[in-house]
């Protein structure tokens, strides 16, 4: 089954065309990496898939589990099991991390016809997941991301992912700004979610996360399009030769 099917997608950020005729297919059970240089459209793709305002789809379609993803408001995408791990998670003063997670999980559960969790059951879940991503319990009682270090913010994203158990995760440069220990924790969190029912899209600039989360497929995003796709070895090739290699190759193609 194809979890995510992007067909000839073109999109603008504001007035600026960014994605051009992008196609991509990711089956359930697979981890795909999308790599590309700065400005290639990686974050635009992530935001378009999550439904952020300020981006306009000008052509093409996106099917999520066979359904029109772009027709859904962001919260419905999330309730249907899509998760965006933010490159820059925002700080939300005045909203407790636990309260936020509980509101999110209960919204998702309600959508799926499950009863809302009471405070006790929820705390059990969150404590267990927090241990998994090695988040200090103190951070659960603080406002969302407020005063968190860069690594703590990224781990908090993975915590949310672990709590919400999405079917399609899109992780936008979740590896950036992490030291090696944090990278391992994040990678463990992602690997823990791998299953035949789930799809994970790793958007990244570097190969280093892929050493810990080995992808089934690697795509190279360049100038708003997928210009190459291959197995995990493509990531290594990119790492060795740099993105200029893709550029030269493209220039050489008639």
């Amino acid at each position: 089954m194809t979890m995510l099917e992007i067909r000839r997608l073109s999109a603008s950020a504001g007035d600026r065309p960014v994605l051009r005729d992008l196609s991509l297919s990711a089956p359930a059970g697979e981890v795909h990496a999308i790599m590309g240089p700065n400005g290639s459209g990686k974050s635009t793709l992530a935001h378009v898939l999550a439904g952020r305002d300020g981006f306009t789809v000008t052509a093409g379609e996106v099917l999520y589990d066979g359904r029109d993803l772009l027709a859904m408001p962001p919260e419905v995408r999330a309730r249907e099991g899509l998760f965006l791990g933010f490159q820059y998670p925002v700080e939300i003063p005045g909203v407790g991390n636990t309260y936020f997670l509980k509101s999110a999980l209960n919204a998702v559960r309600k959508h799926r016809g499950l009863p809302e969790l009471d405070a006790h059951d929820f705390l059990q879940i969150i404590r267990q997941k927090a241990k998994l991503v090695r988040i200090d319990e103190n951070l659960l009682n603080r406002p969302v991301n407020e005063g968190f270090s860069g690594g703590e913010k990224k781990r908090n994203e993975i915590l949310q992912m672990a709590v919400l158990e999405p079917r399609l995760s899109i992780l936008d440069e979740t590896d950036s700004g992490l030291d090696i220990d944090a990278l391992r924790v994040v990678a463990d969190g992602i690997n823990g979610l791998r299953s035949k029912d789930r799809t994970i899209i790793l958007i990244t600039h570097y190969q280093r996360l892929l050493a810990h989360v080995v992808p089934d497929r690697v795509h190279v995003l360049y100038d708003g399009r997928i210009v190459r796709s291959g197995g995990k070895e493509l990531a290594l090739e990119l790492e060795q030769k740099g993105y200029s290699w893709v550029e030269k190759e493209l220039a050489g193609t008639p």
Binding site: A50, G51, R52, D53, P73, P74, E75, R77, A78, R79, F83, L84, F86, P89, V90, I92, F100, S103, A104, L105, A107, V108, H111, Q160, L164
Partner: peptide, 10 residues
Amino acid sequence: FYLRSRGIGL
């Protein structure tokens, strides 16, 4: 958007 992206309605 951050809240909505986690399933919380507008």
